[in-house]
Design a protein around this nucleic acid. Structure first.
Length: 552
RNA sequence: GCGCCCGUAGCUCAGCGGAUUAGAGUAUUGGCCUCCGAAGCCAAGGGUCGUGGGUUCGAAUCCCGCCGGGCGCGCCA
């Protein structure tokens, strides 16, 4: 018998459909977990979907399917032990209820699989790459980078959970106009010129960190006239600072890819040559244009300016070629929505190379901007950076766990209001602590019981019978599905929501039932359930980069 | 003007490859610690799902218009 109840139910429905309405046999079977407990553990609307092709009223078809399933169930002792006969409800839903033993089986599975519970093999053997943050070394990381870091790292972890071999990558521009401005700004500061004063570079960087870098450069006996040395110093110093912040945020990268290397290795030239060789470019007004309109863009784009330098998206395309050549068939880029115009260009640029790269390559997860609120007003100023709030500010204000949980709990495309007061002053009501508290609570029960249960998996789980215990078991069983779905959608916020619900059900259970009861067998069974809850909370928290404390 | 995204309870947000009575948190109000951690639990009130049409037996969910907000629309990156 299949160990996964969902697969089992799908099988039953498939057979019933073949028997009762063969002409509708290829109707996709959707099985969901109803929100209302009265609707059983699983529910399907196939009868509603198939009614048309079957030329039957939905309810009549549902009744026929029900009859067939009931027959299948009574014919098999294993099936009879696993599930109840289905019920019909509403316009023609078929609702399934699992026997208690089927539901609690997940507890044993969790205890056996431990940290691996929730993982799957969907992506086994496939190399995927997630590119995120990719901040230029021209200033400290801002809140938007924080959102990217939280999102990207969680997406990477989700992909890992499904078996993919994931590379976390950070791409940065270490040459070009922005870096030049940075160098000039530091140089100006080193000469005592303040932002806006005569001699200050056009569109220079005005943040206080520029002054700090300038002072450091000077104390290390740097030569004010040596712009090249200043550039190297400033980039190194900002890169180091970003690394410190990322480390504090609990995010690490496998690869740092330098834009300059693309030029150095001739990869940028190669891209342009290939386009030209395929007749995808033409000269106009002293510039070189790419026929992006051939691929649905609204106008052609300049790739080489009249001054001979390339526009930004040429190295971008070259960079993505390396991703493809490095064997990443699935690539996800996490960026702000302000970059959404590059999505088309990069994809089109890749298509125009005729390398056999699929049309939708790469995937993009675009997130909208983050607004930071404090005391009912928007915070725009950071002491360090001047004009924006940094990741460091957020971590200092509310702590890493709260920042990561908050930033990952909204779907990427929703505009995000990060309320410092909510995250900090009301910390006792904060969702992060709510989830962490559930974890700590289980640990504290174990402490009371004299340590972690020795062999929780050997407990007699049939003793778990209450509504709440069944509900918790069902919730636990859902976890692998949540991860699979969240991975498919590249939407880690689903994990944060799931954790909130699981924690809530546990708190509720904890208040309603005593876990450390006299009856040893029952106590062992409840401890096993608690151990499974703890494991799942820990797995989910770890996935979104939040710690699972034993005490708080 | 054009393109993409968003508009769900006072506030912050889930749900949106249609389907059984729209959900959480927070805020407000009222209960629960002689008993495993009250950073918790239980309960109440609070929503014409921006708006007007359309498709459908059935729409918060799909399609179109409008209103409101965000982001793009460079030989900037």
């Amino acid at each position: 018998m299949a160990t996964d109840p969902k697969a089992l139910i799908e099988e039953l429905l498939r057979k019933a459909l073949q028997e009762k309405a063969p002409q509708s046999a290829d109707t996709p079977i959707v099985i969901e977990r109803p929100k209302q407990t009265g609707h059983g553990d699983f529910s399907s609307n196939v009868a509603l979907q198939a009614a048309k092709t079957a030329k039957m009223k939905p309810r009549d078809l549902a009744l026929a399917l029900q009859e067939s399933i009931a027959a299948q169930v009574s014919a098999s002792a294993a099936l009879s032990d696993a599930i109840e006969k289905p019920e019909i409800a509403g316009p023609g839903f078929i609702n399934f209820k699992l026997k208690a033993g089927t539901k609690t089986a997940v507890i044993r599975r969790i205890l056996e699989e431990g940290a691996l519970f929730g993982s799957a093999r969907e992506g086994q053997g496939q190399k995927v790459q997630v590119e995120f943050v990719s901040a230029n070394p021209t200033g400290p990381l801002h809140v938007g980078h924080g959102r990217q870091a939280a999102l990207g790292d969680a997406i990477a972890a989700l992909l890992e959970s499904q078996g993919y071999a994931v590379t976390r990558e950070f791409y940065y521009n270490d040459s070009g106009a922005q870096i030049e401005k940075l160098a000039l700004s530091v140089q100006a500061r080193a000469r005592g010129i303040h932002p806006g004063a005569p001699g200050w570079p056009e569109e220079g960087y005005a943040g206080e960190y520029i002054e700090e870098i300038a002072q450091e450069y000077l104390t290390q006996k740097g030569e004010v006239g040596d712009l090249d040395a200043i550039r190297r110093f400033a980039v190194a110093s900002l890169r180091a600072e970003q690394d410190v912040d990322l480390k504090a945020f609990g995010v690490r990268f496998d690869v740092y890819y330098l834009e300059s290397s693309l030029y150095a290795e001739g990869k940028v030239d190669q891209v342009v040559k290939t386009w030209a060789a395929h007749g995808k470019t033409y000269e106009k007004d002293g510039a070189l244009w790419l026929r992006t309109t051939d691929y649905g863009d609204d106008k052609d784009r300049v790739v080489r300016k009249s001054d001979g330098t390339y526009t930004y998206f040429v190295p971008d395309v070259a960079y993505h070629v390396t991703k493809w050549q490095r064997g990443f068939r699935k690539v996800t880029n996490v960026q702000g929505t302000d970059h959404h115009s590059t999505v088309t260009r990069v994809r089109v640029g890749l298509q125009a190379l005729d390398l056999g790269i699929p049309v939708g390559y790469p995937d993009y997860v675009l997130h909208s901007l983050v607004k930071v609120m404090r005391g009912g007003a928007e915070v725009k100023i950071s002491k360090r950076a001047g004009s924006y709030v940094t990741v460091r500010d957020l971590i200092d204000w509310v702590g890493r766990d709260a920042v990561r949980f908050f930033l990952v709990s909204r779907k990427a495309d929703s505009e995000f209001v990060f309320d410092i007061d909510l995250a900090l002053e009301k910390s006792e009501e904060n969702p992060v602590y709510y989830v962490q508290y559930a974890h700590a609570r289980v640990c504290s029960v174990f402490a009371q019981a004299g340590g972690m249960p020795k062999s929780p998996a050997s407990a007699n789980l049939d003793l778990l019978r209450s509504e709440r215990e069944m509900g918790l078991a069902a919730r636990l069983a859902e976890y692998p599905d949540v991860l699979a779905e969240a991975t498919r959608e590249l939407a880690p916020h689903a994990v944060a929501f799931y954790l909130r619900e699981l924690a809530g059900e546990f708190h509720s259970y904890y208040n309603a039932e005593r876990i450390l009861v006299e009856d040893e067998a029952l106590r062992a069974a409840r401890l096993a359930l608690c151990a499974a809850v703890r494991q799942t909370l820990a797995n989910g928290l770890s996935l979104v980069g939040v710690s699972a404390p034993e005490k708080m």
